[in-house]
């Protein structure tokens, strides 16, 4: 009976969804609602208003900055929740299964990772700093830094990666996404505009394009560093071995 009811429910839901899909406007049609409301404004005016050559960055950081500020805060809250449950490590005294296992890792893997990780970090810096003019931005670059630290930790162990990215640095930078974004928002008020206004009325017209671009880059860098440190801290909290907080022999 229960099975029959759930089957009927799923069938009805599937039929409803298929019906809605059949009524949807064809993909890519220029008369679609998604193409006629805000998109023309973004595509035609963002070059002169948001001063970001990558329209996506202009939309995310400038037009929908308030939305992104909220998202950045959510990521920071995720870290706070993970740390509340798993706890922070004691400084310089952490190990994980890589150190605790007796199996030595392959020389080829160690050499390759040691060679590749610096280039991954370099690429992530490129993604963060070029977010204004090419695909990518703070969040993507930060995620790439996080991924590079994941590779490093799985091969060389938590102790060495916590030496490379010490607790002091992480604790200082974790909030940088929220803090930078919020301070830029406050600076918009001080500059004579609204919260999160990038074009400050008190600054002369000729300087405003450069101001908007550099504020966008500043926010991107804040999100990149903050996001990267949040990812790394969550990883460290999760892979830390229980009861391994003793000094290394």
């Amino acid at each position: 009976m229960k099975r029959l009811v759930s089957l009927l429910f799923i069938g009805a839901l599937a039929l409803l969804l298929l019906y809605v899909v059949s009524k949807m406007p064809p993909m890519g049609e220029p008369t679609n609602p998604t193409m006629t409301h805000v998109v023309p404004r973004y595509l035609e005016k963002s070059e002169g208003e948001a001063h970001a050559r990558n329209v996506v960055t202009g939309v995310i950081i400038n037009y929908r900055g308030f939305d992104t500020l909220g998202e950045v805060t959510v990521i920071y809250c995720a870290l706070a929740a993970v740390l509340a449950v798993l706890g922070r490590e004691k400084r310089g005294r952490i190990r994980d299964y890589v150190e605790l296992s007796g199996i030595p890792s392959s020389v080829i893997v160690r050499t390759m990772v040691a060679l590749v990780v610096p280039f991954i970090v370099l690429f992530s810096l490129y993604v963060i700093l070029h977010g204004e003019m090419s695909p990518g931005g703070g969040f993507q670059g930060g995620a790439v830094i996080g991924a590079s630290m994941i590779i490093f930790t799985t091969v060389f162990g938590l102790h060495l990666s916590s030496v490379k990215v010490p607790l002091k640095v992480r604790a200082a930078l974790e909030g940088s996404a929220v803090i930078t974004f919020f301070l830029v928002g406050i600076a918009g008020i001080l500059g004579g505009g609204n919260f999160l206004a990038y074009a400050w009325p008190r600054v002369s017209q000729s300087l405003q394009p450069a101001l908007v671009t550099w504020l966008t880059v500043l926010v991107e860098v804040g999100i990149g560093l903050g996001g990267a440190m949040v990812f790394v801290s969550i990883l460290f909290a999760m892979v830390r071995e229980e009861g391994a907080d003793e000094p290394l022999a």
């Binding site: 993604v127 695909p135 993507q140 995620a143």
Partner: peptide, 12 residues
């Protein structure tokens, strides 16, 4: 932009 995010966050 989404491709980069999906590759770094989703797959990594």
């Amino acid at each position: 932009d989404l491709a980069l995010t999906e590759a770094a966050v989703g797959a990594g």
